[in-house]
Design a protein around this nucleic acid. Structure first.
Length: 267
DNA sequence: ATGGTCGCGAGGCGA
């Protein structure tokens, strides 16, 4: 069985690439982030024609997450329990379409688009940390209820957990960039302390291994990227991993997302 | 050079 995660940065703009990816990658489950649409303009036919069921959670032109599967798609949850909302100005706090879960081939898969944080002093940063804290508390509970649970927390985590996960850590720290701050890294480490592990890193150690390259500044040809897309697996699932790939080729050419797909193979 | 790139959706915001 193969599971992939990919921040597509608009599903409609990437429809041809997503269809081609499904054709060549042979994945059984594809978790998507940043579909950037609501159900009304979601490309349902793309998945049906490719032989996949799909579940989507999209509220507007921002965010949006989906799971496509050809090994079953059951017990779909849109938002995880207690998922924090964000209040814009003096308006009512609103839920954002950043998490969808489904059971596919016996694995509980969560497609996650972690809040960006924007900047260290921005209200979106405490929102990001709380969002992660609540998710980690839930994910901890799932393992306490069943230590053998097969859970995959996959997606765009918007965190570079280690110095090697960005191309120039000195610059990131000097400039006070997000994604590398201690609170963000601690929030990520808490998942590892809860028993979830990054199953791709052991197979593709850094430095220089990235999943995201900014569109500006020629970041991709200059190999200046970030590793921020992860597959975190529960212990029982991690024990099944036999291979992994970061599809760097997908970042090439016209019409690429700024993120590459991350693929994990299970026995 | 006060920019550079995308996508959404039709001006500016978010990444």
């Amino acid at each position: 069985m193969k599971i992939a995660t990919w921040n597509v940065n608009s599903l409609r703009a990437r429809a041809d690439r997503v269809e081609a990816f499904l054709q060549r990658s042979d994945v059984d489950v594809l978790a998507l982030q940043e579909t950037k649409c609501k159900d009304d303009n979601f490309p349902w036919d793309l998945f049906e024609n490719s032989g996949y069921e799909v579940a989507h959670y999209g509220l507007n032109q921002w965010n949006g997450v989906a799971i496509a599967s050809r090994v079953g798609l059951h017990d779909v949850e849109r938002t995880f329990p207690g998922q924090p909302t964000f209040g814009k100005g003096d308006k009512e706090p609103e839920q954002e379409a950043r998490a969808i879960g489904a059971t596919c081939g016996g694995v509980r898969v969560w497609s996650l688009y972690v809040p960006n944080g924007r900047s260290l002093g921005d209200p979106h940063m405490p929102y990001k940390i709380e969002w992660l804290d609540v998710l980690r508390a839930q994910a901890t509970g799932w393992l306490q209820a069943d230590p053998e649970a097969q859970v995959a927390l996959v997606g765009d985590w918007n965190i570079a957990p280690r110095d090697e996960d960005v191309w120039d850590i000195e610059m990131f720290l000097r400039e006070g960039y997000t994604h590398v701050s201690e609170p963000e890294r601690q929030a990520f480490r808490a998942f590892e302390e809860a028993g979830y592990s990054d199953v791709v890193r052991p197979l593709h150690p850094g430095p220089g291994v990235y999943t995201y390259w900014d569109y500006t500044q020629l970041r991709f040809p200059k190999k200046e990227g970030m590793r921020i897309d992860f597959v975190l697996a529960s212990p029982a699932l991690a024990g099944r991993v036999t291979g992994a790939q970061i599809d760097r080729e997908e970042r090439k050419g016209k019409g690429a997302s700024d993120h590459a797909p991350v693929i994990v193979e299970l026995d």
